Simulated scan of single mutants.
Amino acid sequence: MTVEAQRPAWLTWTVRVVAAGGVAVVAWACLTAGEAVAHGHPAYAVLLGLTVLGCALVLWRSVRPRPAHRGWRGVLDVVLVVAGIGWIAAMAWCRPYVAVEPALAAMVSDAEVTVTESATRVELAPAENTDRNVDGTAVFFQPGAKVDARAYAAVLRPLAEAGHPVVIAKQPLGIAFLATGAFDGARAQLPDAERWVVGGHSLGGVVASTAADDGDPDGPEAGAAPVVGLLLYASYPAGDVSGSLTAEVESISASRDGLSTPDDIEASRANLPDDSSFTVVDGAAHAFFADYGPQPGDGTPTISHDEARTQISAVSRRFVDRLSP
Protein backbone atom coordinates (compact mmCIF):
# COMPACT_ATOMS: atom_id res chain seq x y z
CA MET A 1 0.00 0.00 0.00
CA THR A 2 1.43 3.35 -1.07
CA VAL A 3 1.36 6.25 1.39
CA GLU A 4 0.62 9.53 -0.39
CA ALA A 5 3.23 12.23 0.26
CA GLN A 6 1.92 15.24 2.15
CA ARG A 7 2.54 18.90 1.37
CA PRO A 8 5.84 20.07 2.92
CA ALA A 9 5.43 21.54 6.39
CA TRP A 10 7.28 24.72 5.41
CA LEU A 11 4.78 25.41 2.62
CA THR A 12 1.79 24.72 4.85
CA TRP A 13 3.06 27.11 7.51
CA THR A 14 3.96 29.73 4.93
CA VAL A 15 0.42 29.60 3.61
CA ARG A 16 -0.96 29.96 7.13
CA VAL A 17 1.31 32.90 7.95
CA VAL A 18 0.39 34.69 4.72
CA ALA A 19 -3.33 34.13 5.31
CA ALA A 20 -3.09 35.30 8.90
CA GLY A 21 -1.15 38.33 7.68
CA GLY A 22 -3.96 39.13 5.29
CA VAL A 23 -6.51 39.12 8.10
CA ALA A 24 -4.16 41.31 10.18
CA VAL A 25 -3.78 43.85 7.34
CA VAL A 26 -7.55 44.11 6.95
CA ALA A 27 -7.96 44.58 10.70
CA TRP A 28 -5.22 47.24 10.70
CA ALA A 29 -6.81 49.13 7.80
CA CYS A 30 -10.23 49.08 9.44
CA LEU A 31 -8.96 50.06 12.88
CA THR A 32 -6.72 52.90 11.70
CA ALA A 33 -8.71 54.17 8.70
CA GLY A 34 -12.20 52.81 9.26
CA GLU A 35 -13.90 56.19 8.78
CA ALA A 36 -12.17 56.71 5.44
CA VAL A 37 -13.01 53.17 4.34
CA ALA A 38 -16.67 53.64 5.29
CA HIS A 39 -16.92 57.04 3.58
CA GLY A 40 -14.76 56.18 0.57
CA HIS A 41 -15.53 54.57 -2.75
CA PRO A 42 -16.90 51.07 -1.98
CA ALA A 43 -14.25 49.30 -4.09
CA TYR A 44 -11.69 49.17 -1.27
CA ALA A 45 -14.21 47.98 1.32
CA VAL A 46 -15.34 45.22 -1.03
CA LEU A 47 -11.76 44.09 -1.65
CA LEU A 48 -11.04 44.09 2.08
CA GLY A 49 -14.07 41.88 2.61
CA LEU A 50 -12.98 39.51 -0.14
CA THR A 51 -9.50 39.41 1.38
CA VAL A 52 -10.87 38.29 4.74
CA LEU A 53 -13.05 35.63 3.12
CA GLY A 54 -10.18 34.37 0.98
CA CYS A 55 -7.76 34.21 3.90
CA ALA A 56 -10.31 32.43 6.09
CA LEU A 57 -10.85 29.84 3.36
CA VAL A 58 -7.10 29.32 2.96
CA LEU A 59 -6.64 28.90 6.72
CA TRP A 60 -9.50 26.38 6.86
CA ARG A 61 -8.07 24.38 3.98
CA SER A 62 -4.57 24.47 5.46
CA VAL A 63 -5.62 22.34 8.45
CA ARG A 64 -6.81 19.53 6.17
CA PRO A 65 -4.22 17.01 4.96
CA ARG A 66 -3.25 17.78 1.38
CA PRO A 67 -1.06 15.81 -1.00
CA ALA A 68 2.24 17.24 -2.16
CA HIS A 69 2.22 18.63 -5.68
CA ARG A 70 5.18 17.95 -7.90
CA GLY A 71 6.37 19.46 -11.18
CA TRP A 72 4.37 22.40 -12.51
CA ARG A 73 1.70 22.04 -9.82
CA GLY A 74 4.32 22.44 -7.13
CA VAL A 75 5.59 25.58 -8.85
CA LEU A 76 1.98 26.83 -9.05
CA ASP A 77 1.63 26.45 -5.27
CA VAL A 78 4.62 28.73 -4.75
CA VAL A 79 3.37 31.22 -7.36
CA LEU A 80 0.00 31.41 -5.59
CA VAL A 81 1.70 32.10 -2.28
CA VAL A 82 3.74 34.90 -3.86
CA ALA A 83 0.61 36.29 -5.51
CA GLY A 84 -1.15 36.23 -2.15
CA ILE A 85 1.67 38.21 -0.58
CA GLY A 86 1.44 40.74 -3.43
CA TRP A 87 -2.33 41.05 -2.99
CA ILE A 88 -2.02 41.64 0.75
CA ALA A 89 0.74 44.21 0.18
CA ALA A 90 -1.54 46.01 -2.28
CA MET A 91 -4.36 46.09 0.27
CA ALA A 92 -1.98 47.59 2.81
CA TRP A 93 -0.71 50.19 0.31
CA CYS A 94 -4.27 51.25 -0.56
CA ARG A 95 -5.10 52.16 3.03
CA PRO A 96 -6.41 55.73 2.72
CA TYR A 97 -5.26 58.87 4.47
CA VAL A 98 -8.13 59.77 6.80
CA ALA A 99 -9.77 63.19 6.79
CA VAL A 100 -9.28 65.17 10.00
CA GLU A 101 -10.49 68.50 11.33
CA PRO A 102 -11.38 71.06 10.14
CA ALA A 103 -12.40 69.07 7.07
CA LEU A 104 -14.90 66.99 9.05
CA ALA A 105 -16.59 70.11 10.40
CA ALA A 106 -16.79 71.44 6.83
CA MET A 107 -18.76 68.32 5.87
CA VAL A 108 -21.75 69.57 7.90
CA SER A 109 -24.52 71.48 6.11
CA ASP A 110 -25.49 74.93 7.34
CA ALA A 111 -27.37 78.00 6.14
CA GLU A 112 -24.80 78.71 3.44
CA VAL A 113 -23.69 75.31 2.11
CA THR A 114 -25.54 72.05 1.66
CA VAL A 115 -23.30 68.99 1.84
CA THR A 116 -24.37 65.72 0.26
CA GLU A 117 -22.38 62.51 0.07
CA SER A 118 -22.81 59.40 -2.06
CA ALA A 119 -20.71 56.31 -2.74
CA THR A 120 -18.84 58.09 -5.53
CA ARG A 121 -18.75 61.80 -4.67
CA VAL A 122 -19.02 64.59 -2.15
CA GLU A 123 -20.98 67.66 -3.21
CA LEU A 124 -20.79 71.09 -1.61
CA ALA A 125 -23.60 73.24 -2.98
CA PRO A 126 -24.72 76.79 -2.19
CA ALA A 127 -27.76 76.49 0.06
CA GLU A 128 -31.05 77.24 -1.68
CA ASN A 129 -32.01 79.95 0.79
CA THR A 130 -29.07 82.17 -0.20
CA ASP A 131 -28.69 84.57 -3.09
CA ARG A 132 -25.43 82.93 -4.17
CA ASN A 133 -26.82 79.77 -5.75
CA VAL A 134 -27.37 81.27 -9.20
CA ASP A 135 -23.77 81.11 -10.44
CA GLY A 136 -23.33 78.80 -13.40
CA THR A 137 -19.68 77.89 -12.76
CA ALA A 138 -19.24 74.51 -11.06
CA VAL A 139 -16.02 72.93 -9.80
CA PHE A 140 -15.01 69.28 -10.14
CA PHE A 141 -12.08 68.09 -8.05
CA GLN A 142 -9.91 64.94 -8.05
CA PRO A 143 -8.19 64.10 -4.71
CA GLY A 144 -4.57 63.09 -4.39
CA ALA A 145 -3.60 59.42 -4.26
CA LYS A 146 -5.28 57.56 -1.41
CA VAL A 147 -6.58 60.75 0.20
CA ASP A 148 -10.06 60.67 1.75
CA ALA A 149 -12.30 62.87 -0.45
CA ARG A 150 -13.71 64.52 2.67
CA ALA A 151 -10.24 65.90 3.45
CA TYR A 152 -10.78 68.64 0.82
CA ALA A 153 -14.05 69.93 2.29
CA ALA A 154 -12.52 72.78 4.30
CA VAL A 155 -10.25 74.11 1.56
CA LEU A 156 -12.95 73.94 -1.13
CA ARG A 157 -15.98 74.97 0.92
CA PRO A 158 -15.29 78.72 0.39
CA LEU A 159 -15.96 78.14 -3.33
CA ALA A 160 -19.43 76.82 -2.52
CA GLU A 161 -19.97 79.73 -0.13
CA ALA A 162 -19.21 82.02 -3.07
CA GLY A 163 -21.93 80.37 -5.16
CA HIS A 164 -19.99 77.66 -7.03
CA PRO A 165 -21.17 74.05 -6.64
CA VAL A 166 -18.21 71.77 -5.86
CA VAL A 167 -18.05 68.05 -6.63
CA ILE A 168 -15.22 66.02 -5.09
CA ALA A 169 -14.69 62.58 -6.60
CA LYS A 170 -14.38 59.42 -4.52
CA GLN A 171 -11.87 57.32 -6.46
CA PRO A 172 -11.77 53.51 -6.56
CA LEU A 173 -8.87 52.46 -4.32
CA GLY A 174 -7.96 56.14 -4.00
CA ILE A 175 -6.36 56.22 -7.46
CA ALA A 176 -7.39 59.04 -9.79
CA PHE A 177 -6.62 57.02 -12.92
CA LEU A 178 -9.44 54.67 -11.88
CA ALA A 179 -11.88 57.59 -11.78
CA THR A 180 -11.36 59.11 -15.22
CA GLY A 181 -15.09 58.90 -15.90
CA ALA A 182 -16.03 60.72 -12.69
CA PHE A 183 -16.16 64.11 -14.40
CA ASP A 184 -18.80 62.86 -16.84
CA GLY A 185 -20.78 61.66 -13.84
CA ALA A 186 -20.54 65.09 -12.25
CA ARG A 187 -21.74 66.73 -15.44
CA ALA A 188 -24.75 64.44 -15.44
CA GLN A 189 -25.37 65.18 -11.76
CA LEU A 190 -25.33 68.96 -12.36
CA PRO A 191 -26.91 69.47 -15.80
CA ASP A 192 -27.61 73.14 -15.06
CA ALA A 193 -23.92 74.03 -14.77
CA GLU A 194 -23.01 76.41 -17.59
CA ARG A 195 -19.25 75.99 -17.33
CA TRP A 196 -16.75 73.93 -15.34
CA VAL A 197 -13.47 74.36 -13.56
CA VAL A 198 -11.73 71.02 -13.08
CA GLY A 199 -8.99 70.62 -10.54
CA GLY A 200 -6.99 68.15 -8.56
CA HIS A 201 -4.32 67.60 -5.98
CA SER A 202 -1.09 65.79 -6.86
CA LEU A 203 -2.00 62.67 -8.92
CA GLY A 204 -5.56 63.97 -9.05
CA GLY A 205 -4.31 67.06 -10.84
CA VAL A 206 -2.68 64.91 -13.50
CA VAL A 207 -6.05 63.32 -14.30
CA ALA A 208 -7.81 66.68 -14.04
CA SER A 209 -5.40 68.07 -16.64
CA THR A 210 -6.50 65.37 -19.05
CA ALA A 211 -10.16 66.11 -18.36
CA ALA A 212 -9.57 69.81 -18.99
CA ASP A 213 -7.71 69.10 -22.21
CA ASP A 214 -10.57 66.87 -23.39
CA GLY A 215 -13.17 69.40 -22.32
CA ASP A 216 -13.07 71.58 -25.44
CA PRO A 217 -16.73 72.34 -26.29
CA ASP A 218 -15.90 71.78 -29.95
CA GLY A 219 -14.30 68.40 -29.21
CA PRO A 220 -15.64 64.94 -28.32
CA GLU A 221 -17.96 66.39 -25.65
CA ALA A 222 -19.59 68.83 -28.06
CA GLY A 223 -22.77 70.24 -26.52
CA ALA A 224 -21.62 69.72 -22.93
CA ALA A 225 -20.87 72.61 -20.61
CA PRO A 226 -17.30 73.69 -21.42
CA VAL A 227 -14.26 73.43 -19.18
CA VAL A 228 -13.05 76.99 -18.73
CA GLY A 229 -10.51 76.49 -15.97
CA LEU A 230 -7.89 74.06 -14.63
CA LEU A 231 -7.02 74.37 -10.94
CA LEU A 232 -3.87 72.49 -9.93
CA TYR A 233 -2.92 71.85 -6.31
CA ALA A 234 0.74 70.78 -6.08
CA SER A 235 0.37 69.13 -9.46
CA TYR A 236 1.08 69.35 -13.17
CA PRO A 237 0.02 67.59 -16.40
CA ALA A 238 1.59 64.31 -17.43
CA GLY A 239 2.45 65.67 -20.87
CA ASP A 240 2.57 68.83 -22.94
CA VAL A 241 -0.86 70.48 -23.16
CA SER A 242 0.47 73.97 -23.89
CA GLY A 243 -0.82 73.94 -27.46
CA SER A 244 -4.13 72.14 -26.98
CA LEU A 245 -5.53 73.32 -23.64
CA THR A 246 -8.11 76.08 -24.05
CA ALA A 247 -8.97 76.42 -20.36
CA GLU A 248 -7.26 78.99 -18.16
CA VAL A 249 -4.85 77.58 -15.59
CA GLU A 250 -4.12 78.35 -11.96
CA SER A 251 -1.26 76.32 -10.47
CA ILE A 252 -0.97 76.58 -6.68
CA SER A 253 2.10 74.97 -5.17
CA ALA A 254 4.01 74.86 -1.89
CA SER A 255 7.58 76.00 -1.34
CA ARG A 256 8.27 73.18 1.16
CA ASP A 257 6.65 70.39 -0.87
CA GLY A 258 8.75 67.24 -0.79
CA LEU A 259 6.63 65.33 -3.34
CA SER A 260 5.62 67.79 -6.06
CA THR A 261 8.78 69.77 -5.53
CA PRO A 262 9.29 73.42 -6.53
CA ASP A 263 11.60 72.20 -9.30
CA ASP A 264 8.81 69.92 -10.61
CA ILE A 265 6.35 72.81 -10.65
CA GLU A 266 8.84 75.10 -12.37
CA ALA A 267 9.47 72.47 -15.05
CA SER A 268 5.72 72.17 -15.65
CA ARG A 269 5.57 75.72 -17.02
CA ALA A 270 6.76 74.44 -20.39
CA ASN A 271 3.83 71.99 -20.56
CA LEU A 272 1.13 74.56 -19.80
CA PRO A 273 -0.13 77.57 -21.79
CA ASP A 274 2.01 80.68 -21.60
CA ASP A 275 -0.71 82.66 -19.80
CA SER A 276 -1.00 80.14 -16.95
CA SER A 277 -0.86 81.64 -13.47
CA PHE A 278 1.50 80.21 -10.83
CA THR A 279 1.05 80.88 -7.12
CA VAL A 280 3.50 79.58 -4.51
CA VAL A 281 2.37 79.32 -0.89
CA ASP A 282 5.58 80.08 0.94
CA GLY A 283 6.27 77.67 3.80
CA ALA A 284 3.51 75.19 2.95
CA ALA A 285 3.93 71.45 2.34
CA HIS A 286 2.27 68.91 0.05
CA ALA A 287 -0.21 67.71 2.69
CA PHE A 288 -1.42 71.26 3.38
CA PHE A 289 -3.72 71.18 0.33
CA ALA A 290 -6.14 69.04 2.32
CA ASP A 291 -6.64 67.90 5.92
CA TYR A 292 -5.38 64.35 6.38
CA GLY A 293 -2.28 64.64 8.52
CA PRO A 294 1.39 64.32 7.51
CA GLN A 295 2.45 62.36 4.44
CA PRO A 296 5.65 60.31 4.07
CA GLY A 297 8.26 62.00 1.89
CA ASP A 298 6.80 65.46 2.35
CA GLY A 299 8.83 68.51 3.30
CA THR A 300 8.84 70.32 6.63
CA PRO A 301 6.44 73.27 6.65
CA THR A 302 7.36 76.63 8.15
CA ILE A 303 3.83 78.09 8.37
CA SER A 304 0.68 76.76 10.01
CA HIS A 305 -1.76 74.54 8.17
CA ASP A 306 -4.55 77.04 8.86
CA GLU A 307 -2.57 79.87 7.27
CA ALA A 308 -1.76 77.78 4.20
CA ARG A 309 -5.37 76.63 3.81
CA THR A 310 -6.60 80.22 3.96
CA GLN A 311 -4.22 81.26 1.20
CA ILE A 312 -5.05 78.27 -1.00
CA SER A 313 -8.80 78.82 -0.62
CA ALA A 314 -8.48 82.54 -1.37
CA VAL A 315 -6.49 82.01 -4.57
CA SER A 316 -8.87 79.25 -5.68
CA ARG A 317 -11.91 81.41 -5.07
CA ARG A 318 -10.48 84.38 -6.96
CA PHE A 319 -9.64 82.13 -9.88
CA VAL A 320 -13.12 80.59 -10.12
CA ASP A 321 -14.81 83.96 -9.56
CA ARG A 322 -12.81 85.46 -12.39
CA LEU A 323 -14.07 82.80 -14.79
CA SER A 324 -17.69 83.56 -13.95
CA PRO A 325 -19.39 86.21 -16.12
Results as ranks from 00 to 15, higher is better:
residue 9 A to D: 14
residue 9 A to E: 12
residue 9 A to T: 14
residue 12 T to A: 07
residue 15 V to E: 15
residue 22 G to M: 12
residue 24 A to Y: 09
residue 26 V to R: 11
residue 34 G to V: 06
residue 41 H to Y: 10
residue 41 H to S: 09
residue 45 A to E: 12
residue 56 A to K: 06
residue 56 A to E: 09
residue 58 V to I: 15
residue 58 V to T: 07
residue 62 S to Y: 05
residue 64 R to D: 06
residue 67 P to L: 04
residue 70 R to Q: 10
residue 73 R to K: 14
residue 75 V to C: 05
residue 80 L to Y: 09
residue 81 V to F: 09
residue 84 G to T: 00
residue 87 W to E: 01
residue 90 A to C: 06
residue 93 W to A: 14
residue 97 Y to F: 15
residue 112 E to N: 10
residue 115 V to L: 06
residue 116 T to Q: 10
residue 118 S to I: 06
residue 118 S to A: 03
residue 123 E to L: 14
residue 130 T to K: 13
residue 130 T to L: 13
residue 130 T to A: 12
residue 130 T to Y: 10
residue 134 V to C: 14
residue 137 T to Q: 06
residue 139 V to W: 07
residue 144 G to P: 11
residue 151 A to Q: 08
residue 151 A to R: 04
residue 156 L to K: 11
residue 158 P to F: 01
residue 161 E to Q: 14
residue 164 H to I: 03
residue 165 P to D: 06
residue 165 P to Q: 09
residue 166 V to D: 13
residue 170 K to G: 09
residue 171 Q to W: 04
residue 171 Q to S: 01
residue 172 P to T: 07
residue 173 L to W: 04
residue 179 A to Q: 06
residue 184 D to F: 07
residue 184 D to R: 12
residue 186 A to V: 01
residue 187 R to N: 02
residue 187 R to A: 00
residue 188 A to L: 03
residue 190 L to S: 02
residue 191 P to N: 00
residue 192 D to F: 01
residue 194 E to D: 09
residue 198 V to P: 01
residue 202 S to G: 05
residue 207 V to N: 04
residue 208 A to N: 03
residue 210 T to M: 10
residue 211 A to E: 12
residue 212 A to Y: 02
residue 212 A to C: 05
residue 214 D to K: 12
residue 216 D to S: 11
residue 217 P to H: 03
residue 219 G to R: 06
residue 226 P to S: 03
residue 226 P to R: 05
residue 227 V to H: 11
residue 228 V to S: 10
residue 230 L to V: 11
residue 233 Y to K: 06
residue 233 Y to A: 03
residue 233 Y to D: 03
residue 234 A to K: 08
residue 234 A to R: 01
residue 237 P to Q: 03
residue 238 A to M: 07
residue 246 T to M: 02
residue 247 A to S: 09
residue 248 E to V: 00
residue 248 E to C: 01
residue 249 V to D: 13
residue 251 S to I: 05
residue 252 I to N: 02
residue 254 A to S: 07
residue 257 D to A: 12
residue 258 G to A: 02
residue 266 E to M: 09
residue 266 E to R: 14
residue 268 S to T: 11
residue 268 S to R: 01
residue 271 N to S: 15
residue 272 L to D: 08
residue 275 D to R: 15
residue 275 D to V: 04
residue 284 A to T: 04
residue 284 A to P: 06
residue 284 A to L: 07
residue 291 D to V: 04
residue 297 G to Y: 04
residue 298 D to L: 05
residue 300 T to S: 14
residue 303 I to L: 06
residue 303 I to C: 10
residue 303 I to F: 08
residue 307 E to T: 14
residue 312 I to P: 08
residue 312 I to A: 05
residue 313 S to W: 04
residue 314 A to Y: 05
residue 318 R to D: 11
residue 319 F to V: 08
residue 322 R to M: 08
residue 325 P to R: 05
